[in-house]
Nucleic acid binder design. Structure first.
Length: 568
DNA sequence: GCCGTTTTCGGCCCGACTGTTTTCAGTCG
């Protein structure tokens, strides 16, 4: 099985950790980390790129040496340097590196002076008092380590929609301290958020932190200084609040929005101009060149404005240096929803109610795509029921002015890639979404072949939630997205960005991969209730993170255009 | 280990907070 980009990235990250503990040149360490991010963010797998004889050394942060190391990993499936490092530094240093207060320096000290190599070693050393007197290990550090070992901090990320609820409440609470904005991965609209980074422009910086510490939901205060305060809320989410002066608003927003890699790229450009970029502004000597707005900072760095969703150091800085970036898709570009359920199967509302909700959003059309018969639990439709539902839709359409209900189905993809309804039934429908709902654990080749086979059916227009993941509860099934997107392009089949906040599937990287091959995307809510149409914006978020424009998305089209595009 | 409209060598993002020191290193984001 070809080596995955994510595996290579993980190897480079581990390598960086070990090199750092070993005390290697920090820039060499950083080079491995940067390369890991580059490989991880590629729209195509390096195995495929190598097979096409592409030069990996042209990728940002990857030079001759790392390119040959990647080629080696792909060829052998193993990474020699990492194996050597592991031999030199046996144990479970990765797990220990996750503990608060343990960075490379203290880890090395533990390793060399106290022979601590695993979490169990550390527990014993703490208990026996072996660490007393070890440089940098005072009573408080020891206490924190003991606490962390007893109750390991759940390294959890929160779904964007969950983080949103917390963020909105906090913003309201802090509003009277100044201008409040949520930055970080939340503003970049990542599908999950690790912590909330909140920025407040306030004259009295300390007052903001004080107010945060007094928030009802705070269970722990991790840091509390004059300009920066960090707390943990009852839900477990960590909140960082930073107070900054008005004239630094733009620079601070930029800095706090990240990503870290994007910031580093920007700072590199500043350095080249003999400037310095920090959260207070773009600074030349002691003079502030820019800082009040983000636009101003980008402009002075010779860049066009980069929307937060693109700030991942995936090539957007180079693109912004060439000229204006393409206008990313917006919620207002959407003219209809192509994946909607009703109470004919597992939805909670009638077709007419769903239509009313779709019209209220200003849509021109909606495809009703209830489940097929295999979904017995949700009363999936058999061929006869499909016909009956079609008649009801016809009647409804006769009465509707300026809105069209498209007939459709979300048909199950069976184990071998066959579909759950006969072609004669599918041929009668306007929109056929084909989805996997069973056999999630097939091996990669079989799972991929199954979906490609379904796409090969000329009646299928869209593959629904292509990876099947449920964020935080179910891993995506094992498929080769490179193959899937190539097949989608060759077979002229659309892929879905399912906007349901638990799914967000395709994710941003996959959406970008699809776009880069010219595959058309449908952004759909999979609405099972009238209020679920509002999830569209989460789908738009991920589409923007995948650099999609309105042109890449089929349901930005007028109905006649859409009909033409879906034809196969 | 990467990279170059100042450079193929000598740089490499930057500041806040904490705990351990006794003026600062380490960690973190």
């Amino acid at each position: 099985m070809p080596v995955q980009n994510a595996e290579i990235a993980a190897m480079f990250d581990q390598c960086a950790d070990l090199l750092e503990i070993k005390g290697e040149n920090q820039f060499r360490v950083r080079a491995y980390r940067k390369a890991a991010r580059t490989v991880e963010g590629l729209p195509r797998s390096v195995s495929v790129m190598l097979a096409a004889e592409e030069d990996l050394a042209e990728l940002p942060g990857i030079g001759k040496d790392l390119a040959s190391k990647i080629a080696d990993i792909v060829a052998k499936g193993r990474f020699g340097l990492l194996e050597q490092l592991k031999k030199k530094l046996p144990g479970d240093l990765g797990a220990m590196a996750g503990l608060p207060g343990l960075g490379p320096k203290r880890l090395k000290l533990l390793y060399d002076k106290a022979k601590v190599r695993t979490l169990d070693d550390l527990k014993r050393a703490l208990k026996s008092g072996k660490l007393h007197g070890l440089h940098g290990f005072g009573p408080l550090t020891e206490k924190k380590l003991v606490a962390a070992l007893e109750k390991p901090a759940a390294v959890q990320r929160f779904r964007l929609s969950v983080a949103e609820a917390e963020a909105e409440a906090l913003v309201a609470y802090l509003r009277d301290t100044g201008k409040v904005v949520v930055a970080g991965s939340y503003r970049r609209r990542r599908d999950t958020v690790g912590d909330l980074d909140i920025l407040v422009t306030a004259k009295q910086g300390a007052a903001v932190g004080d107010k945060l510490v007094g928030y009802d939901n705070v269970t722990e205060v991790l840091a509390h200084g004059p300009t920066r305060t960090t707390v943990v809320l009852r839900s477990g989410i960590q909140v960082d609040v930073r107070a900054i002066p008005e004239e630094s608003y733009g620079a601070a927003l930029l800095y706090f929005t990240g990503s870290k890699a994007h910031n580093i790229a920007l700072r590199g450009r500043a350095t080249k101009r003999k400037w310095k970029l920090n959260e207070y502004g773009l600074i030349s000597g002691t003079r502030r060149v820019a800082g009040a707005t983000e636009e101003e900072v980008y402009q002075r760095l010779g860049l066009s404005y980069v929307p937060p969703e693109m700030r991942e150091d995936r090539g957007e800085v180079a693109l912004a240096a060439k000229g204006p970036l393409p206008r990313l898709i917006e919620v207002g570009d959407i003219r209809g929803d192509l994946h909607v359920h009703s109470n004919w199967t597992d939805g909670t509302a009638s077709i007419a109610e769903m239509v009313a909700a779709a019209r209220a959003r200003g849509y021109a059309y909606m495809a009703l795509t209830d489940h097929s018969r295999r979904q017995a639990m949700s009363h999936g439709l058999d061929p006869a029921k499909v016909v009956r539902q079609g008649r009801e839709i016809d009647k409804l359409n006769d009465k509707l002015k300026g809105f069209t209900v498209l007939t459709g189905i979300e048909v199950d993809i069976l184990k071998d890639g066959d579909l759950d309804l006969p072609d004669t039934t599918l041929a009668q429908l306007d929109v056929v979404v084909a989805s996997v709902h069973t056999y999630f654990d097939l091996p990669r080749e079989a799972q991929t072949a199954r979906i490609v086979r379904a796409m090969g059916n000329p009646h299928v227009h869209i593959i629904g939630h292509p990876t099947g993941r449920l964020i935080g509860t179910r891993e995506p099934y094992d498929i080769d997205m490179d193959q899937i997107t190539s097949a989608a392009r060759d077979l002229n089949c659309c892929l879905e960005i399912n906007a349901e906040p638990d799914r967000l599937d395709l994710n941003d990287l996959h959406a970008h991969m699809a776009k880069s091959k010219g595959v058309k995307i449908a952004i759909s809510t999979d609405a099972h209730a009238v209020n679920a149409f509002q999830y569209m914006r989460y789908g738009i978020d991920q589409a923007r993170r995948g650099w999609l424009t309105a042109d890449d998305v089929v349901n930005t089209r007028t109905l006649p255009q859409l009909r033409r595009m879906l034809k196969r």
